[in-house]
Write a protein that binds this DNA or RNA. Structure first.
Length: 936
RNA sequence: GGGCGAUUAGCUCAGAGGUAGAGCACUACCUUGACACGGUAGGAGUCACUGGUUCGAUUCCAGUAUCGCCCA
């Protein structure tokens, strides 16, 4: 910050922010030493997808995390905030395959090795985007510890985790219905599937009884389905056992139309008799519910679709058709052959692949799974045990969502038929199955090829005598979330047990993330940490002490922001327009109770946001308050001025120093309890209303020593000026420290300007201001607030009397029956003179006769303004207003007191207060009436 | 269908068993020696609805409606 005179009137965030971001990074300000003293505090950031670019959700998450870690740093903790990105298997592979297709090539054509080279090249080129964007928010992370889920060390962690889980029987290879995404040609987990409501149809079909009509003439059953093409794979029809309509038919056989297969009618509890016809066709290989029914009744599994979503040979004449074409063809054939009963429009939920954006196909296939129940039960146990290592959710209600999800959890399919990712550390012993990998090829799991070969050789002979054992690594990779699940400890050096970072900062202090990710991520981290016990010392194994769950940023119409809806608001645009500090402050200030969504107002025509603009205005207000200080501190700094001398303090000084201490206390508590929005709001109000509106206005009188003063009067004025400077410097200095977690760049800039500190001395690394207990004076705060109200009333009377802004009042008379208030008011006389623009201010304990003055009543105090000319109409309207207000109050209070139940049952102090208020209101009303009468 | 959340000023949201608050927007005046991204003053609400508990409910409880999210 340059000399005050040269300071522009308007703060320009852009250059300033870049400068401090560079200074922090160059000085490695946020690169902590694990061996340094200080209580550890650690946050690993939720790693954004490496393909991504910054969206409002990242900005929000970042604003919250950075506020927390910057606060903890000011509190003297040894803080590590660790950044990184994840490799996003499917997203990256989709991008690259699209590129290859455009070039007329394909990944198969390129081969695995070349494809991966290309993927790394792509990552080197484009993967830095989001990281650069995070820097622009002023994120105080340790960039030297930046991690990527495919880093060699993190890969080691993934392999180690896989091997250990496998050795404990927690990873298995099995055949199961998986969610198959035909677009990406890979299995996806349950969590990567999104249910979407779509308008479809319910087709009713007739399935004839194989043995002809029954005694009562029934010739067929009617089934209803939303997916006609799967009927080719039907191996049964199920009805509810309690359904009287079909009870007699259970056990009979139907002839499957178009195919002719004989399929049984079974009774199963899970059939809803009220849905459709109450008869469900069962296709165990193509539907998870049907799979379960099939298991219970021993129905065969017939797969009629290939992995690309087309019909296979088992579909007979429909072979080769895409699943959606096949649907039409099957319906047409059923109609032609007289099996179609009717078609009804039907809205239902269809599972879509998150990434592929096409309906997923439940497909029977052999995949790797994590057996989740043992992992989940450990987490549930910790949650149930109050002294246990369960994470503390903020707000608490999310712990229920977490627990519910850990209950009845399904096994986690972790293999993906992709190339970009962590290759599964399993090797098939292909020499056992004639060089081919089949579902029955035996395998070994090992940390590397050599270990795998050794294991294989120990177990297998080589197929035929004299043949060497041959192994081949599983071509698949692991679900990206498998590596993300290790993030809190893999980033700190696990599985290296000697890693200093792990010893210092694990378990981490808090995980900050959106509620949409509790299942995806939070539960997987706790499950994996539970089984791997990263510190190897037993408890506490939970990877984070607290989990702070925040809401989502919604658009101006309260819609979730998403790429597909195109309703995202670009944080970078807002940063360029208003500054990163303004965006951060606006986002945090909007957070009320934790966990609530926030709505960001936004005008798409002008790319402007009133909310962020408000925060920008606040930054400018602080800029100008500091500018004022620089112009008025006479070249001194908070350090050269020193703390104010208590003996020299004036009333207003004692008030603001008490307020400052109070705000210090409240703010530290709020920051520490995740009450970030409350902290932001509290500081905003303190800075704007109390510091700028009152303190600076009150100090102006004393900061300016008139040139004409001489001798002792001048000495006294100079001493008072110094005291005022000390107060101003102290208040501003502490305010900047307290605001720093929210607006790091601006406060760093202003603090340097104020202190004249060298660039190497960073505000970010200063200690939080010590709480000045002695300054706290709640009585003074109350009395001064009253004084402010009386000044407001006097100003209001000026307006009522129609005074011009510059016009002086000849006399302001304030009357109060409270002696302590009277004392404070007397001390404040010089201030009131300036603020009300009065020639004279006097304080009375009983009201003086000032006929035809303007009078206002507030509580037990009255303010009278003697004006040069009296406007009788204004006088009267003012009095009538006060009278009306008092009478309304009297009516309410008297009504309450008149209720005998109130007097009997309400607490005595409430009744007494009510009576006192009534008496006061009556006195006010009487006074006003009398004055009105005097006016005639 | 199950669960969770929301409903308070024109807008975005706080709040608390005892007479309703902020910011923005609005109105009037003001370019005053920090700031017009500003100042001073002002207007503005049946606290979604219906019951219950209570001396007293906008606040606690139950139900209803609307909106949103998650899970099936």
């Amino acid at each position: 910050m340059s000399p005050a005179e040269a300071l522009p009137k308007i703060y320009d965030p852009l250059g300033t922010e870049a400068r401090w971001q560079q200074a922090w990074e160059q000085q490695a300000a946020f690169h902590p030493d694990p061996q340094a003293p200080g209580e550890p505090f650690c946050v690993v950031i939720p790693p954004p997808n490496v393909t991504g670019s910054l969206h409002m959700g990242h900005a929000f998450n970042t604003a919250l995390i950075d506020t927390i870690v910057r606060f903890q740093r000011l509190r003297g903790k040894n803080v590590l905030c660790l950044p990184g990105t994840d490799h996003a298997s499917i997203a990256v592979q989709t991008i690259l395959e699209k590129q290859l297709k455009a070039e007329g090539s394909s990944k198969e054509h390129l081969g695995r090795e070349a494809f991966l080279e290309r993927a790394w090249a792509w990552k080197a080129e484009s993967g830095g985007t989001i990281v650069a964007q995070l820097r622009r928010l002023g994120y105080s992370v340790d960039w030297q510890r930046q991690r990527f889920t495919l880093d060699a060390q993190l890969n080691t962690a993934v392999v180690e985790a896989f091997v250990r889980l496998h050795d404990q029987g927690l990873i298995y290879r099995g055949e199961y219905l998986v969610n198959w995404c035909p677009a990406s040609g890979s299995a996806v987990s349950d969590l990567e599937v999104e249910m979407k409501e779509v308008d479809g149809f319910l087709w009713h079909f007739r399935y004839p009884l194989a043995s002809g009509p029954t005694a009562d003439g029934t010739t067929h059953l009617e089934v209803a389905t939303t997916r006609p093409e799967t009927l080719l794979g039907d191996t049964g029809v199920a009805v509810n056992p309690s359904d009287q309509r079909y009870a007699a038919l259970v056990g009979q056989t139907l002839s499957l139309p178009l195919v002719g297969r004989l399929i049984p009618i079974v009774a199963d509890e899970h059939v809803d008799p009220g849905f459709g016809t109450g008869c469900v066709k069962v296709t165990p290989a193509h539907d998870p519910n049907d799979f379960a029914i099939g298991q219970r009744h021993g129905l065969p599994l017939i797969t009629v679709m290939a992995k690309d979503g087309s019909m296979n040979a088992a579909a007979g004449r429909f072979e080769g058709l895409d699943r959606f074409e096949a649907r039409k063809a099957v319906v047409a054939a059923m109609e032609a052959e007289g099996f179609l009963v009717k078609v009804e429009p039907h809205r239902h939920a269809v599972p879509y692949s998150d990434r592929g954006k096409v309906p997923v196909e439940p497909l029977l296939s052999t995949q790797w799974f994590v057996r989740t129940e043992p992992l989940a039960s450990r987490c549930r146990g910790a949650l149930a045990n109050p002294a246990g290592a369960a994470p503390q959710f903020v707000p608490e209600r999310w712990s229920k969502v977490y627990r519910d999800w850990l209950t009845d959890i399904r096994d986690w399919c972790i293999s993906r038929q992709l190339w970009w990712g962590h290759r599964i550390p399993a090797w098939f012993v292909v020499s056992e199955t004639a060089g081919e990998i089949t579902d029955s090829t035996p395998y070994v799991v090992a940390r590397d090829q050599a270990e795998a070969l050794a294991k294989a050789e120990a177990q297998f002979s080589g197929g035929s005598p004299g043949q060497p054992v041959q192994i081949e690594q599983d071509p698949d990779v692991l679900d990206t979330w498998f590596s993300s699940g290790l993030w809190p400890f893999s980033t700190l050096g696990w599985p290296d047990g000697a890693a200093l970072d792990l010893a210092k900062w694990y378990p981490t202090s808090v995980l900050v993330t959106g509620f949409d990710i509790i299942f995806f991520w939070v539960a997987r981290m706790t499950m994996l940490a539970g089984v791997l016990d990263p510190r190897g010392v037993g408890e506490p194994w939970i990877p984070f002490a607290d989990v702070y769950i925040h809401g989502l940023v919604r658009d101006e119409q309260n819609r979730k922001m998403s790429k597909s809806a195109g309703n995202g608001i670009d944080p970078l645009l807002l940063i360029e327009r208003y500054g990163a500090d303004a965006l951060r402050f606006a986002l945090v200030r909007e957070v009320a109770g934790a966990g609530q969504d926030i709505r960001l107002d936004y005008d798409r025509k002008t790319d402007s946001s009133a909310t962020v603009e408000g925060a920008r205005n606040f930054a400018n207000k602080l800029w100008n308050a500091s500018r004022f200080a620089l112009m008025n501190l006479g070249g001194e700094t908070p350090a050269s001025l020193g703390d104010p001398d208590p003996a020299q303090l004036q009333l207003a000084d004692r008030w603001i120093l008490s307020r400052l201490a109070r705000v210090n206390q409240e703010t530290a508590e709020r920051y520490g309890n995740y009450g970030l929005g409350e902290a932001a709001k509290g500081l905003y109000e303190f800075a704007w209303n109390e510091v700028c509106d009152w303190t600076i206005e009150l100090l102006k009188r004393r900061l300016h020593v008139p040139a004409e003063l001489e001798g002792a009067a001048r000495e006294a004025a100079l001493a008072d000026q110094r005291s005022a400077r000390q107060v101003l410097a102290k208040v501003l200095n502490e305010l900047l420290l307290m605001l720093h977690p929210l607006m790091p760049h601006l406060t760093e800039e202003l603090w340097h300007g104020l202190r004249g500190a060298p660039i190497e001395t960073l505000l970010a690394l200063q200690p939080w201001p010590a709480l000045d207990q002695a300054a706290l004076d709640s009585e003074l705060e109350e009395l001064f607030a009253e004084t402010i109200e009386l000044i407001r009333m006097a100003r209001n009377l000026r307006a009522t009397g129609g005074l011009k802004p510059g016009q002086k009042v000849s006399l302001v008379a304030i009357t109060t029956s409270r002696p302590e208030l009277q004392r404070v008011l007397e001390l404040a006389v010089p201030d009131i003179e300036v603020l009300v623009k009065a020639e004279r201010v006097e304080v009375f304990s009983s009201m003086p006769e000032l006929p035809r003055s303007l009078m206002g009543i507030s509580g037990s105090a009255q303010v009278q303004l003697q004006l040069p000319e009296q406007d009788l109409a204004a006088l009267r309207s003012r009095l009538e207003k006060d009278l009306a207000k008092a009478e309304k109050e009297i009516a309410g209070l008297a009504g309450r007191l008149a209720n005998p139940n109130f007097a009997d049952k309400a607490p005595a102090e409430v009744v007494a207060e009510c009576q006192a208020n009534l008496a006061e209101a009556q006195a006010q009303a009487q006074l006003a009436q009398q004055r009105l009468a005097d006016l005639g």
